[in-house]
Design a protein around this nucleic acid. Structure first.
Length: 110
DNA sequence: AGGCTGACTCCGT
DNA sequence: AACGGAGCCAGCC
């Protein structure tokens, strides 16, 4: 159990707070947690989430709004489908109007 | 025990 | 503008 891991736990906490129809980036979360250079760990935390549906890992993308982690979902297109289901438009694995749907944790939590 | 990999990002050339 | 290297750190071989 890694529930004692403050970093991972915070990543999950932030991920859960991502509003419906919004997305954020690994770097944004990492920076918010004070570990801007550890963006990879955020992605690793998402991977660790596995089948935990309480954490919307599909709402976390890279800084370009590209669905870099879609391969880790059950289906290759599952991540995109989930996002589109929330009203987010995606073209070529990239979120359209990314800046518009982007959700900054430090601007809403901190 | 040592080395490689990866759902990232920034910096230098 | 494009490419390569570096930093971060947990997990796996």
């Amino acid at each position: 159990m890694k529930n004692n891991d403050n970093f991972f736990e915070k990543v999950y906490d932030v991920a859960r707070k991502i509003p419906y129809g919004r997305v954020t980036s690994y770097g944004a979360i990492a920076k918010f947690l004070g570990a801007a250079k550890s963006a990879r760990m955020v992605g690793w935390a998402m991977n660790s989430v596995g089948g935990d549906h309480s954490i919307p890992a599909h709402r976390v993308v890279n800084r370009n709004g590209v669905l870099t982690g879609k391969h880790h979902f059950s289906g290759i297109n599952l991540m995109q489908q989930l996002l589109e289901n929330e009203g987010i438009q995606i073209k070529d694995d990239k979120i359209i109007h990314f800046e518009t749907v982007f959700w900054n944790p430090s601007k809403n939590i901190g």
